[in-house]
């Protein structure tokens, strides 16, 4: 089995061979790993990893999140993404990860909308202010244009991916 995984902008090409029950031979790039594993619970996997240089017992905790699989090992948290299913998701229109969209960076509540439909806005101009956990974030126009739609109201709960204000590019 082959996977193409991504952690924080680094890609990991992976080849997996099921060696015997509960043991895998894994190639990550050029590095070879022999892994014995036990599934402890829905969220916990115990692994004994040997790659010639490093060997030892690891407890890994995993759960699916909005952007991939969240893995926690030794206090460090990783968002592991499958590049192929990521591409599929974007094709199907989920998770629009485009910088030109005005969408909150985290779940938040709308505090104010200093623009109206039809307003001309300049790149960098504040178009909506959201608040999460007592911290306010101002979302700005990504380019010069005209406000054509406002899809949220004051005090609305909004989530990443939701387009709050739509702006039509000038020209």
């Amino acid at each position: 089995m082959d996977y193409r995984l991504r952690i924080d902008n680094t890609d990991f090409p992976v080849e997996v061979e099921v060696n015997e029950d509960l043991q895998l031979n894994v190639m990550i790039g050029e590095k070879k790993y022999i892994v014995d594993y036990t599934v402890i619970s829905d969220f916990c996997i115990h692994m004994a990893v040997d790659n010639g240089i490093r060997s030892g017992n690891i407890n890994a905790f995993t759960a699916y999140g909005a952007y991939g699989k969240n893995v926690v090992i030794n206090g460090r948290s990783y968002m592991v993404q499958d590049i192929d299913s990521l591409a599929q998701a974007v094709r199907k229109g989920r998770q629009p990860n485009l910088p030109n969209e005005i969408t909150p960076p985290m779940p938040a509540v709308v505090v104010s909308i200093p623009v109206s439909i039809g307003d001309l806005v300049n790149k960098g101009q504040a178009v909506i202010v959201v608040s999460a956990m007592k911290m306010e974030t101002t979302l700005c126009a990504p380019f010069d244009g005209t406000v054509v739609r406002i899809n949220a109201g004051i005090n609305d709960k909004v989530v990443p991916g939701q387009i709050l204000v739509e702006i039509e590019k000038d020209g």
């Binding site: 990991f12 894994v26 790993y33 592991v80």
Partner: peptide
């Protein structure tokens, strides 16, 4: 965050996929 143990996260991902 340091990434020296990112390979372990990759292994955990794979096992999670295969086992579940």
């Amino acid at each position: 965050q340091k990434t020296d143990e990112a390979d372990l996260a990759v292994l955990a991902y794979i096992i999670d996929e295969i086992a579940r």
